[in-house]
Simulated scan of single mutants.
Amino acid sequence: MKIRFLLFFFALSFYSYSQNNVLVFQSDFGIKDGAVSAMKGVAMGVSTDIKIFDLTHEIPSYNIWEAAYRLSQTAQYYPAGTVFVSVCDPGVGTSRHSVVLLTKSGHYFVTPDNGTLTLIAEQLGIQEIREIDEVKNRRANSNESYTFHGRDVYAYTGARLASKTITFEEIGAKLPNEVVKIEYQKPLYNNGVVKGGIPILDIQYGNIWTNIDKKTFSNLNLKVGDFVSVQIFNGTKKVYHKKVQLVNTFGQVAVGTEVCYFNSLLNFALAVNQGNFSEKNKIYSGASWSITISK
């Protein structure tokens, strides 16, 4: 009976980490030229059975932080075994490592280890990391190309992994369970004040999305309809200080009114009803931006 249980547990663990033919691409390439299509072509050249999806290719150029955030925003909704290829690589050609991270949730991330994995490592946990062996896992006849690892290394390796052409162990040498991290303000409560970061904008509408979750916010004992004192900083410079009403929906206030609410991720956010909070107040996002909230 004990042997059967161990075999069942092993099989379950293997299933949880087994690739599922799903390959998701993210980059800062945009779609004006053929770069994204070339990566997909390389993947299809490995296997036409792969199911390919786009996370986004509109990461602002060289913005590693936003690449990190978009992965953490979406990866959790894909099934275990999904392979993500994320290419925001301003350091291409330098000594940064090319890696595949297997999370404790059973997801795979193929990317340069340049800070892109900051939030995923925290959110989904690190099961194992391997460095891509570019001798074995590189598109044939691409050795003279030095500036498009997204096509020649990451898309190729990601496709081979997603299609089970190679195993995770065949990626390359095992690395310590550590990734390059971007420092940022984490949500916390202390002495009547909640503090957090502004990792991203709801870019279509200019809303400000923080990383302050409902549980942390609840320490303030505020309710819908109350006014909240909000201060926003870029580094050490204060750029905003107002009292803003907490609402459930924008329709509770007049058009043009600034409000705070909880977004679709159930994190604290700021908006202008039918307006653009970011443009109006010249407030943006990234690891240097922080926010404090009090009664």
Rank of each mutant, 00 (worst) to 15 (best):
N177M: 04
V92F: 01
N190V: 05
N207L: 04
S98A: 15
S290D: 06
T249F: 09
E128I: 03
A68D: 09
L71K: 03
E144K: 13
Y156A: 12
G158Q: 12
L7R: 14
K223M: 08
K282R: 13
Q19H: 06
F29P: 04
V83P: 10
I171N: 01
I31L: 09
E183C: 00
I31Q: 11
S98D: 14
Q231T: 05
V110N: 00
N141H: 14
T48Y: 07
A254P: 05
E134K: 12
V272I: 15
N114V: 00
G150I: 01
Y205K: 07
L175S: 02
G150R: 03
L188P: 03
F29E: 01
K214V: 06
K104D: 14
S47N: 10
N276T: 08
F262V: 04
V179E: 10
A43T: 03
I126Y: 04
I31N: 11
N137H: 08
G286Y: 04
Q76Y: 11
Y205Q: 08
G158P: 13
R151D: 09
I166L: 13
T48A: 14
T103M: 08
C260T: 14
G286C: 08
F5L: 13
G41L: 08
L265I: 07
D113C: 07
V239E: 01
I31W: 01
L222I: 04
K243G: 11
F53P: 02
H97D: 13
N177E: 03
N21M: 11
V46F: 07
F10I: 12
V193A: 09
G197S: 15
R4I: 06
G93T: 11
A67V: 01
N281F: 14
Y108W: 06
E258M: 11
V180H: 00
T111H: 00
R70D: 00
I182G: 00
I212L: 06
Y78G: 14
A173L: 06
V46L: 03
S16R: 10
Q127F: 01
F250W: 09
D226Y: 11
N248C: 05
S145A: 07
K181N: 13
K223D: 15
N211C: 07
